[in-house]
Design a protein around this nucleic acid. Structure first.
Lengths: 308, 308
DNA sequence: TGATGTTCATAACCCCAGATTATCAAAACT
DNA sequence: AGTTTTGATAATCTGGGGTTATGAACATCA
């Protein structure tokens, strides 16, 4: 058998985690798989690379030497991938992550625009909560992702796409009553107990809690929706009120007529949706190109220029 | 799927052969296997690497770029293998090629000596004619080989092991008759028609023809042995005479008592057996160590110091 | 111009490398 | 001693990558 990139990448993971189990998790395999690959690398090279005498994993001198080479090799591999993959702009396969509170609204508008730009583009979408999207991005499973920025993860490049205002959503009656008073509501004055939120892990829920100055414990924990349409349904049924991102309005208001929205008082709370990618130092023409298309889509969707 | 070293090595072969079939042969796979790997590399990178429009294979600019990276990577891989594999001297797995006119005589003496030196050594032997041995060596399938030197192949390092004299072998009667004359035979005076040789491809046959100043066509082409024991049997049965390497004498003379040998007149014809390896610029302690053991074995076998 | 040969791509099938789950053994805590 | 943690080993299954057979495109030649 021959030495493989797989073995080298496992070695790197092991050297950095100093633990077989964690290293295995990092490269998304089970611990025995990693163990055997390391062992095979060792007898291929005829040398022990890992010092197993001690409890703590440590590299032998030879192991350190191989590790250095492995790092150079994997770096060169990554360089190859990045130089070639995108040098001809936005084409080929593109794996894009996107959060659930944006995807169903932005994509129907953005996808036709992408298709218009390049019919050969093979787009693979990955819809998941922010954390999983960013993990996948960090692992190189995704080429880029649409999330709320700043993501607060080092090593990522962020490009703002649009400013997404939050609006108060409630039943028609409640909104009419508020309107009658003639003043626009203030987020921090909302009754936490009547505030409906998305399930845990959705950044929108965190952002809503943030702008309201509330903690999750103060809210109705028995009523958490796993998607915005569900949440809107609950709001319309009079279970409470919530914050809706502007990007969802057209679709949700049409789908749930018993719900109404109204803007908050200035300064209006909002989130910024951006396109992020790993910082690889390569050309980023494709990245800005993709960003432009998505921004244009949001502009069409929001009916105005919401450049963040 | 991920990019692999296999794909990169296939790309290098293809770039150098400029031909799918030949490149496939070079890496010891069939043409479809190489084709699919190249294709997979291409769609992994999202770019055409090979310009197939023309009849002649050519790399696209991207292909050239990837090729450069691939070369760096494979170089680094090889460096890793050579640095680690032998840094602790002669141990671990050792793949050794050896020609058939040396193997059965040298090995029985050399193997115990190797084992004595290091019981952990996992020795894999490959017995084949010179050409195949050198091919395997060049491919990196072998770590070293025992052949007649100079091998005439660039990029190989040669270390002489011993001087192997050729002696005239014939039936007891013939040898007795020659001895009676009181003079030692001269190779170029042998009757080509009575000269028995090994099958084609054995370097010993070429060397015998060389020292006799004869061409193969002049010999009895209907009597070619595929091994020295067979050849000795033919000689003993009175079919003709041949040249035997000194290293084979003890064994063959004992096995075939009806055969006898006598030395040639000075300057005695001979071949030099050497240990060869690829020139990799790494440490060669293991190489000289192995050479020393083999030379000592030959010394024991030939009963004298035959340092070449 | 049709026949033939060369060359790369594709299809169908097969096998082993490498994954998984389950389990063990040894060391490090209670 | 009992429990937990961690890496190694065993048994098993699957997909990547191999092979052979065949197709399609193009060049070459009678």
């Amino acid at each position: 058998m021959n030495i493989t990139l797989r073995q080298l990448s496992y070695l790197i993971a092991l050297a950095e985690e100093r633990h077989f189990g964690r290293a295995a998790a990092r490269v998304h395999v089970t611990q025995p798989a990693l163990s055997t690959q390391i062992r095979e690398l060792e007898d291929r090279l005829g040398t022990a690379l890992i010092d197993r005498t001690d409890r703590a994993i440590r590299l032998t001198p030879a192991g350190q030497d191989v590790l250095d080479g492995a790092r150079r090799i994997m770096g060169e591999v990554e360089r190859i991938e990045n130089r070639t993959r995108w040098q001809q702009g936005l084409s080929g396969r593109l794996k894009l992550g996107i959060i659930p509170t944006v995807a169903p609204y932005l994509l129907p508008v953005a996808l036709p625009r992408l298709r218009m730009r390049d019919v050969t583009l093979d787009l693979r979408l990955f819809e998941a909560k922010t954390e999983r999207v960013l993990d996948a991005l960090g692992d190189g499973e995704l080429d880029a992702a649409v999330v709320a920025i700043p993501a607060g993860v080092p090593g990522l490049v962020e490009q703002p796409l649009f400013r997404d205002r939050f609006l108060l959503a409630a039943s028609r009656g409640s909104v009419a009553r508020l309107n009658a008073r003639g003043e626009r509501p203030v987020p921090s004055n909302l009754n936490p107990n009547a505030l409906l939120l998305l399930d845990e892990g959705h950044c929108l829920a965190d952002q809503a809690l943030d702008v309201c100055g509330t903690r999750r414990e103060a809210t109705r924990v028995d009523l958490r929706a796993s998607s915005l349409p569900t949440l809107c349904g609950m709001v319309a049924a009079g279970f409470g009120q919530t914050l809706l991102p502007e990007i969802s309005l057209a679709k949700e208001c049409a789908a749930v007529p018993e719900m109404d929205v109204m803007p908050f008082a200035d300064p209006e709370p909002h989130r910024v949706i951006g396109l992020v990618r790993r910082d690889l130092g390569g050309t980023d023409a494709w990245f800005t190109e993709l960003g432009d298309i998505l921004a244009a889509a949001s502009e069409q969707l929001l009916g105005h220029d919401a450049a963040a």
